[in-house]
Design a protein around this nucleic acid. Structure first.
Lengths: 139, 139
DNA sequence: AAGAAAAAGGATAAGGATATCGTGTTATCG
DNA sequence: CGATAACACGATATCCTTATCCTTTTTCTT
């Protein structure tokens, strides 16, 4: 449902959010702290930087930082470039996309369309409504 | 969320359910009808036969059939041997399982534990409460 | 300017999911 | 019995995710 890579991304951005002091954080430090393979995390953060969620800075005193306040970044924005959430739109019975407008490809709605859509919807809704700052907020 | 293999399994068993006449159905026919790779489908059905969901019969006039009425087979039973649903129990924030009794590995519950559990629960619930015969029932 | 520190980025590998192929085994039919 | 038709099953192939390694590029510090 959520890929390993997506999990890494969430944890790293959570780190950036909770340690946000305006400066750049090193991949080395994040990966050490969170126990995520360093070079791999580097690629993940690079991807998110390309998406505009992060700023990266090369050279000494460089690193990564959030490009917006954590409160303005949704989990959806983090996960989508990694997990390609639109693929989730496939019908549970397969083959063709079975979206709201296009159940089973034409007007032959899969019997489980509604229930399945509800489950999927709950997940996507959750990702879209939850912002990064919520990840570490104490209950 | 649901693997391609799991989708194939659901569709094939739906076929068996709707064409149930007490006899055995050929992999060749199912794969042809549903456009699923023949040898691959054969392995999937074999797996489900080992689980006891299907009976298989070798030789002439052999094939596969449901070992129980479709009404008594849940989607969970079909999907679990393929997708290993227990793995879904991992916490959204990663690393350690974050089950009901064991949030974040000890008594430090992940902030999203409840919401995530709700999404996951809805999916598993859906699989457990829905039986095979519902797949093709007309609305 | 030189050296050091950091991300960028290409090449490659490991592993699992998704298949494909060929052969073995079993059952039926003539 | 012998041919044929079906699943069983091990070996192999392909692709994607998940990494790892190494070199290049950029930037800061001295």
């Amino acid at each position: 449902m959520l890929s390993q890579t997506g999990r890494y991304a969430l944890r790293a951005l959570d780190y950036l959010a909770t340690h946000d002091d305006g400066g750049y954080k090193l991949v080395k430090d994040i990966s050490g702290e969170l126990n995520i393979p360093r070079q791999y995390l580097s690629k993940i953060l690079h991807t998110l930087a390309c998406e505009g969620l992060l700023h990266s800075q090369r050279g000494r005193s460089g690193g990564f930082r959030l490009s917006r306040p954590a409160k303005q970044i949704t989990l959806y924005e983090v996960i989508d470039p990694i997990d390609h959430l639109s693929r989730l739109c496939a019908c549970i019975m397969g083959e063709k996309p079975c979206g709201e407008e296009n159940p089973r490809g034409d007007d032959d709605p899969c019997a489980l369309h509604e229930m399945w859509g509800e489950v999927r919807g709950k997940y996507l809704d959750f990702l879209q409504k939850t912002t990064l700052d919520k990840l570490s907020s104490d209950v």
